[in-house]
Nucleic acid binder design. Structure first.
Lengths: 140, 140
DNA sequence: GTTGTTGCAAATACTTTGCAACTAT
DNA sequence: ATAGTTGCAAAGTATTTGCAACAAC
């Protein structure tokens, strides 16, 4: 239950960091929707809510949230990172529609198992993986 | 056989571009080894060979090579791109050992099929994909 | 009161671009 | 001759960092 409101204070304490309005606002903003937004989007949204933060603080706070698994940082090859809240912390990968930009989340156990099997064949075990499908709609 | 020497002239002609020493040197350098190097590595190697090129020309030429499938551009989440020659143009994905930095190439048809199946389930077909395994050695 | 945090602006890292000099055709 | 190419330096983009003012404890 790392996503409850009070939990932010817990990780800050654990990290020896102070609880501040900026940190709460940033986590609140990221939590507030499940989109896959970049740092600038998040920064702008917070400011539009009338809260004053700087980009520097957004980046610094996101680092803490990522480290503590409150937020997932992803790289879709766009030259910047996107972030999503890990509200239930269920692993999933992403499918990006190249026509609409829609991002679909999926999870497939068979795929997870197959990845491990492939790594094993080369004498390794998987620590983490990146799996992204860039897709287009099937014609009906 | 897009990798033969003369083929560079062909794609340049096709693109309406001129054949220059710089372009040849850059393609030669990338072709010369199968490493997964970044633009700076490639630039430095060419200069160490005594050929004068600029970074700008390296980047501009790589774009043409990528567009014409002579070179594959990949993003391992390091904040810069790496490039590899597509000498036989066989598709493969990459496994990166987090302990040694080694990059292993692999191909698994089952994985390819499974990806398409997953996309189909959501009403899509796969245009391209990114699959990267970050691994560590299995204990013996 | 002390120590960590913030915002700003400057720095960084990689890549792209404008432009005048240069070169392939 | 002329139109494309090059190298340089400046600009661009996303992110990080130094530091003085400020806020949490």
């Amino acid at each position: 239950m790392n996503q409850s409101n009070g939990a932010l204070k817990d990780i800050l304490r654990k990290e020896g960091l102070r609880y501040t309005n900026q940190r709460q606002s940033i986590w609140d903003e990221i939590r507030s929707n499940h989109d896959h937004r970049d740092a600038e989007d998040i920064y702008i949204s917070i400011r539009n809510n009338g809260v004053n933060v700087s980009r520097a603080t957004v980046y610094r706070t996101i680092d803490v949230l990522v480290k503590n698994r409150f937020v997932r940082k992803m790289d879709l090859g766009e030259g910047r990172f996107r972030y999503e809240p890990r509200l239930d912390d269920k692993h999933h990968d992403h499918m990006v529609c190249e026509e609409t930009g829609d991002i679909i989340e999926y999870f497939n156990q068979e795929l997870e198992d197959l990845q491990e099997k492939i790594a094993n064949e080369f004498g390794y075990t998987v620590v983490r993986h990146v799996h992204q499908l860039f897709v287009k709609p099937l014609k009906k």
